[in-house]
Design a protein around this nucleic acid. Sequence first.
DNA 1: TCCTCACTTGCAATCGATTGCAGAAGTTAT
DNA 2: ATAACTTCTGCAATCGATTGCAAGTGAGGA
Lengths: 352, 352
Amino acid sequence: MKDKAAKPGGRAAPAQKRPAHRLTMADVARRAGVSTATVSRALTRPDQVNEKTRDLVRGIAEELGFRPNLIGRQLRVRAATSLLILVQDLDNPFYAELIKGAEAVARANHLSVMVGGTDGLEEVEQLYSEQFLGRRVDGLVILFGHLPAGISPKMAEHSPIVLVSEDNPALNLSSVLVDNVGWAERAMGYLMERGHRRIAHITGPLARIISRQRQEGYWNALAKAGLPQDPALEALGDFSFERGRAAARELLSLPDRPTAIFCANDEAAVGAILGAADLGLSVPSDVSLIGFDDIMLAQISQPPLTTIRQPRQQMGAAAAQLLIDMIEHGPGKRAHKQLDCELIERSSVRSI
Amino acid sequence: MKDKAAKPGGRAAPAQKRPAHRLTMADVARRAGVSTATVSRALTRPDQVNEKTRDLVRGIAEELGFRPNLIGRQLRVRAATSLLILVQDLDNPFYAELIKGAEAVARANHLSVMVGGTDGLEEVEQLYSEQFLGRRVDGLVILFGHLPAGISPKMAEHSPIVLVSEDNPALNLSSVLVDNVGWAERAMGYLMERGHRRIAHITGPLARIISRQRQEGYWNALAKAGLPQDPALEALGDFSFERGRAAARELLSLPDRPTAIFCANDEAAVGAILGAADLGLSVPSDVSLIGFDDIMLAQISQPPLTTIRQPRQQMGAAAAQLLIDMIEHGPGKRAHKQLDCELIERSSVRSI
DNA sequence: TCCTCACTTGCAATCGATTGCAGAAGTTAT
DNA sequence: ATAACTTCTGCAATCGATTGCAAGTGAGGA
């Protein structure tokens, strides 16, 4: 990659004879007997050039298969061209749909979307920050709750950056969020309305703000119902299927078994279905389950999962839109967009 | 976006006073009392400039927070900077993992990854083709079996383009594939080894080559075993969960019910589990099921699905690598990379 | 003392398109 | 016929960095 020097020995040079002179506007101009300025105008501002000239130039450009070099254009016309979406885990289905929403809006605004999966690695964050600082991307959608290494909070203040899904109140950045605390409370409320009193919680990884917020909602609901917090009813999870399964086994082996479990996400909830099955218990007859997110899995699981749906695609779209506004009008003041979730009733909860 | 003209009425202009003159090398140069050439070298070829000058320049660059404009650099140094991955449906989990694999390899080679979801729309394909023709991206990973609108086969011959997952033999392009026919046959073989003779098939959408290849594998296996093709045993699917469910109901309502079903993909297979359940039948005791792909769902379904695993991440990585080679050494001759699948034995098949 | 060579640095061209400004040509009004 | 406009086109600067070439400096050798 970096070293193209001809190898001393080796097989004969495979490359083409000449570097295949790339077609530029100058070529079209020469061929049409006009200046490059005219070519440029003929191609991008048809009304500013005489009809005959325009058709001539366009014809020749067509015939030659000329396409303007977008890098050249971009250097001159400083218009935004792309957004970068930063994710920790690119193949998490939750993010995929979000990316889709953002891409659609970006595309409608003549922007393209780059994606970067950081795996949580600082060096990779740094690398992508460079793209932003080097103005190769014009805005940043961040799907984790911190600034990527290489971007200082002060810098971020004045930049088109938006935090999505996971907030970080310490940074005062624009964001697109759902009310995790409130909807966790709502999920708990749903369980309580159906008579459940002894309700366990499988958390997400507590290092993540989003997990702590859902936990807070769990606590709030308990408090409002005058129920005590019982540490034994909180099992540490990490959003994974396997951990959800194990956690459910722990919780359901308790002497005084909970009648329902609020899971911090769907994947863990589906794990919990199996964890229950491991103990010969079935959902919802022996234990009720409610999840969070409404990933595809939630519809397909047996039983289908009652859960809180996050409007993922809309979140992505809103993020892109916010960014585009910031790019056009300057960062201005922070915008905090909050989208509504929805409780999707399926069959993993029964009344008692 | 296109029209920035000041709105006649409205609130006061929110934009900053001045467009915040962007820092360039010239600024650093002036401040350091050297030429931009020296700044450039001090920053990118440390050994070519005197130690003292270098430190001075770097210090000032640091202090000023200068970052070189990557667009300017890219215009001058024609090095590849990015790959574009084109997909029909961005939130299909199958592709997400593939993108992840490609991104990792791209990143390791100092390239970034753009993604485009076309939804199968020609106009969107056209739009992304433009990015490629305009040299804003240097290579194309295509995850569907045709060239995007706007790129002619002849053009494609000489360009860094690779078809992944879905081939199109008509185009003679480089590709990264699995042997869909062979592995479909293998799936069928697995069923037959376990005594199944009456085996149905839920196809994918037959417009897609990949579906037809798996179907061909199904037929081949039948033929090799001396079994007849029975049209009644082939149900048209579309890779979706719902259609899989419906198809399974049709097949299992047949007077002479199949003992096993080979599903063209996992999502349909999981649907089939429920389709069977709809008829009071259970998997694998009443009917065996084998899928294709090994998406996450396959591990989690009840019962977990026996299936053919495609090495998605490797496919993405191989595609990126192939592209990078083509970019460095010219397209050269076509490379067809075939990766191995793996039969993952879980519990959706029983011997009879 | 003069020559050669290595090491630093700057000049200016270059990548490819866009666009402000001004001149040329043509039209209309007076 | 002349002034006043329009309309069209080209010149040349510009966006921001990189790099071939040449010049300047100082050290070391003859």
